[in-house]
Design a protein around this nucleic acid. Structure first.
Length: 468
RNA sequence: GAGUUUCUAGUGUAACGGUAACACUGCUGAUUGUGGAUCAGCCAUUCUGAGUUCAACUCUCAGGUUACUCCCCA
């Protein structure tokens, strides 16, 4: 009997794995530019952390957590999100005392939510996000939004919609909740069962209800903006003004309420509709939080963060064919030993070329040369290195370009230099990505960059060799 | 948690209750040191379990699982 994977989990391998790496690498690189450093919190935490951190009232905690008792009867939970774990990590390691604030961290890894799988939604999925903890300047909010926006742009997602709203400070929210309760109490009989529950638990959530009839009622509900304290209003205005000055487009959406209880003041979501029209929901979201660090036992400092759904972003990029061609692993060399006796030398050569910085695979079966060429083709290898008894006797190898069919005998002592020449990147001195065939000697490319009337001078060192 | 839905070779698809078929991929050979072609051959406990039947991929029941919807979220 075969064992199959758990519902809502996915195996990532082959070309899809290259796509995930590409997305994660772009994200990591840009986070480093923004001076965030990587953090790797554990997957397992005490359930208590999420109950207190994320909030008992949230659906994530109420019905979506993978919670179980371990052998010591401790209640543990597979993280449903990163923020609470990072808050714990900061507090436990006393990072707020050890370094200048804010603490800026980014993370990437799997999270778990027990729910029915559907489009863009899995039980185990990957989140990439950042937290910026310990500074109350709302510039931090904008910094984080700008980071997220930069990432999405670098990935090639041009038409991203940023929805933004403010939940205000505690005082604003309490006033608003009272007003909402009063308002919805008049209509609650006509509303959906979920909303009836929400009225008591967290009336803010009613604003997020998707039932059409309820949405009609929501339209006439009191607005958050009318209940904001002056300081909350000012903060939000500051954030919006700053976004504007940075040319980051946004839409204020006063029905935007996040599902995690720790948020206050600025909250935002990133939406993107793929050309196929698939609606993956928000591809990323985040916000500002005031009480989380304190709730976990730390000092009374705020934080702000966002998180992307890596699977959703991969899906969207796939739908819109935005993955660059060159992200899929190509093999530089395939080593072909002729006969068992040549294998030892082949391994040595393969390793030497690897240490030179190239990807090298080797045929492990004693099969005919023809078969080895077929295998090299399958792997899309650029070059073959053939080693047989003749070559070993002369301390040579045969180096064959599998695209052009050219081949030459190379002394093993010269192999390194020969290979480096073959792989030398040809760059036109115009530095303009002009795609000129600069190896043709006088390099008469027709790019329209304006340099010397003499035309380009190609910096490629391969001329002489190729022309011979 | 509720609803609809999928399940046959690595992939995509056939088969009235009666021999599991086809295409691509893969492997082996024709071809003993030079490939991408051609030709031959090989590759399945039909998701699992139970039931009905002389006979089940096909019908029934239970479970798993795929995809999607609601709730909610990344």
């Amino acid at each position: 009997m075969s064992i199959i994977g758990v519902k809502g989990t996915h195996d990532v391998f082959g070309s899809e794995s290259c796509e995930f790496s590409f997305v994660e690498n772009v994200m990591k690189r840009i986070c480093e530019f923004f001076a965030f450093s990587e953090v790797r919190p554990p997957v397992l935490e005490h359930s208590e952390l999420f109950i207190r951190g994320v909030g008992e009232g949230s659906d994530v905690v109420r019905k979506e957590m993978y919670t179980f008792d371990d052998k010591g009867n401790r209640s543990l939970t597979l993280r449903p999100e990163f923020t609470a774990g990072i808050a714990r990590l900061i507090v436990q390691n006393k990072l707020t005392n050890l370094q200048e604030l804010p603490i800026k961290m980014y993370y990437c890894g799997p999270v778990f939510r027990y729910e029915r799988p559907q489009l863009g939604r899995y039980r185990q999925f990957n989140q990439f996000g950042v937290e910026c903890v310990g500074h109350s300047n709302p510039v931090a909010d904008v910094d984080v939004i700008s980071l997220a926006y930069t990432i999405l742009q670098s990935l090639g997602l041009e038409n991203v919609t940023i929805k933004i709203n403010t939940l205000g400070d505690e005082e604003s929210r309490n006033n608003y909740k009272v007003a909402l309760k009063e308002f919805f109490a008049k209509h609650i009989d006509k509303m959906c069962p979920d909303c009836k529950q929400r009225l008591e638990l967290n009336p803010l959530r009613i604003l997020d209800c998707k039932v059409p009839e309820d949405q009609e009622i929501v339209k006439d509900a009191p607005k958050m903006s009318d209940y904001l304290t002056e300081s909350a209003k000012e903060k939000f205005k500051f954030v919006l003004d700053l976004l504007e000055s940075m040319a980051i487009p946004y839409e204020v959406d006063d029905t935007l309420v996040r599902g995690l209880d720790y948020y206050s003041d600025t909250v935002f979501e990133f939406h993107y509709k793929s050309s196929k029209g698939n609606n993956y929901g928000a591809i990323g979201a985040g916000g500002h939080y005031d009480k989380l660090i304190k709730e976990v036992g730390g000092p009374d400092v705020p934080g702000v963060g966002f998180s992307f759904g890596v699977e959703r972003i991969v899906s969207v990029l796939k739908d819109d064919e935005l993955f660059p061609e060159d992200i899929y692993n190509g093999l530089d060399f395939y080593v072909m030993p002729m006969g068992v006796k040549s294998q030892a030398s082949a391994v040595a050569v393969a390793n030497a070329v690897r240490m030179n910085g190239y990807s090298v695979d080797m045929c492990l079966d004693d099969v005919k040369l023809g078969s080895m060429f077929k295998r090299a083709d399958k792997k899309h290898a650029k070059f073959a290195i053939i080693i047989g008894e003749n070559e070993i006797a002369n301390s040579k190898v045969v180096l064959k370009n599998l695209r052009t069919q050219e081949q030459l005998d190379v002394d093993i002592s010269n192999l390194r230099d020969t290979i480096d020449e073959l792989f030398h990147e040809c760059e036109c001195c115009c530095g303009d990505d002009c795609e000129c065939e600069c190896c043709d000697g006088d390099c008469d490319c027709d790019c329209d960059c304006d340099h010397d009337a003499d035309g380009h001078k190609c910096c490629c060192h391969n001329h002489d060799k190729k022309e011979n």
